[in-house]
Simulated scan of single mutants.
Amino acid sequence: MRALRPLNPAMAETFLPPVMEARRWLEGVTFTPERPLINVSQAAPVDSPPLPLREAIADAALNDPQAHLYGPVLGMGELRAELAAQWSTAYGGEISGDQVAITQGCNQAFCAALSSLAGAGDEVILPSPWYFNHKMWLDMAGAKTVPLKCGEGMIPDPQAAAALITPKTRAIVLVSPNNPCGAEYPPEIMRAFLELARAHGIALIVDETYRDFDSRSGAPHDLFADPDWADTLIHLYSFSKAYRLTGHRVGAIVAGRERLMQVEKFLDTVAICPNQLGQIAALWGLRNLGDWVAGERAEILRRRAAMIRGVEGLEGWKLLGCGAYFAYLQHPSALASNAFARSLVRDAGVLLLPGTMFTPAGDADGARQVRVAFANVDTDGIGALMGRLSQIQR
C-alpha cells in the first residue's frame, strides 16, 4: 500500500482522538450480563432531551420553514439576545446580543476563538492536565502549547503562568468546572488570570461548558462585572450538557464585537451557520427549562458526593479533583496509566481514560492519573464501579 501524500505535517503529528482510541480497547473483550461494561470514558449525556423540548424541536421541524434554511453566520438574533440577557443577570455584568456568537458546539467555539488569536509559531498557555481537544486544535494549527502544571486541588497558579508568558504568547485558556479534573476555580484565581492577561495584552479564554453543574451557588466569578471585560475575556459555553443537545451541536462565544468580526470569518468558512433546529432548541431551553436544569444539577451533585465517598474507601487511590462530570484520580498500580486503563477493560470491565491523554508526553504525573466521567453512572453504578476498582490487583 502506497503512503498517503501529501499530508499536512501538523495534522500528522496530532494525536488520534482519545475517546475513539479508548473505544478500540473494547474490541475482542466479552462482557456478560453479570458483569456488564461500566463506561466512564466520555462526558456526554446519553439520555434524550426532556419531552417538551423534543416537542418544540419537532414543531419547528414541521412548521417553521426557516428552520431548514441558512441563517445568520453568528447565529439567531433571538438566541444571542437571550443568552446575553441571562448571562448579564447571572454574572452581574453588561453583555449585549452583538457580543454573542452561536457555534456548532463548544469545540467549534474554541477553534474559532483560537483561529482569531494564534497561528503557526504562536504560543498558548494551557493548564495541565488539559482538555485534549484543546491541545489537538493547537497542534493542528501549528501553535505551541505551553503547559502550566496545576497545583494543589488541581488549580492553576497565576504567578506560575506569568513566568511562562513570552512575546509569542497569545492567550491563556481556563476550563472551570474543569475537564478533566473537575476542579472549580475560585473567583479570586479567575480575577488574577484576567488581570495577568490584560497586563500582557493577551486573551483570557474561559471555557464554562459545565457551568450549570457548578456546586457553588451564585456567580462563579466576577469577570463580566468588569466594565472592560471585552478587551481581554473570551467566554465559551455549551448547550449540549445543560439540555442534552449533544447531537444538535450548539455552543456559544461571548467576546468583544471586534473579536466576533474575526470569528465570523472562521464560522462562515467552516459551517456557514449553526444548526437551526439546535438553536431553536437552545432558545426554548433557556426560556423554559431553568427548573429542569436545576434538577439535573442536583442529580450530578449527588453523584459527585457518591464519587467522593467511594474513593475515600479505595485503598491506595487518591482523589485529586471532583466536580461537574469528572473525578480525577491517582491510581495505585505499578503500571503507567495508559497500560493500567487498558488492563481495567479486561480485568474489571471498566472503561476510563488515562492521565497520559491529558498531559504532555512523558509527564510523570499523567502516568499516575486517570479520569472518571461519572455523569452517566447513577449512585448505584458508582457503587458498582468502586467495588470493581477495589478488587484490582496492584
Rank of each mutant, 00 (worst) to 15 (best):
V250D: 07
D268I: 04
A197W: 06
P186H: 00
E312R: 09
H235E: 00
A298T: 07
N275V: 09
D268L: 09
R257E: 12
D214C: 10
I272Y: 15
E188Q: 13
L236H: 11
L289V: 05
L277R: 00
A298R: 12
W229R: 03
G290T: 12
I189H: 07
S215H: 13
L260D: 05
E195W: 10
E299Y: 10
I234H: 06
G256P: 15
D214E: 09
A230H: 15
V263M: 05
L283E: 01
A298H: 07
W229T: 04
A242F: 09
E296R: 14
R257Y: 06
N288E: 03
I234D: 03
D231N: 11
L204D: 01
R257G: 09
L233N: 01
G285R: 03
D291P: 06
R309I: 09
P274M: 02
S215V: 14
S240V: 08
A255D: 08
H248G: 12
R309H: 15
R216F: 07
E188I: 01
R211M: 11
V311M: 01
E264D: 04
K265R: 10
H200N: 13
R244F: 11
G290K: 13
E258W: 04
A203H: 04
G256M: 12
A225E: 09
L267R: 14
L277F: 02
T246H: 15
S238R: 07
N275F: 04
E296V: 04
L314P: 06
H248F: 09
Q276P: 08
R303S: 06
R297T: 04
G256T: 09
L223R: 05
L314D: 02
A219Y: 06
R302Q: 14
Y237W: 10
T269C: 12
T232D: 00
E195L: 10
Y185H: 12
L286W: 06
F193K: 01
W292A: 11
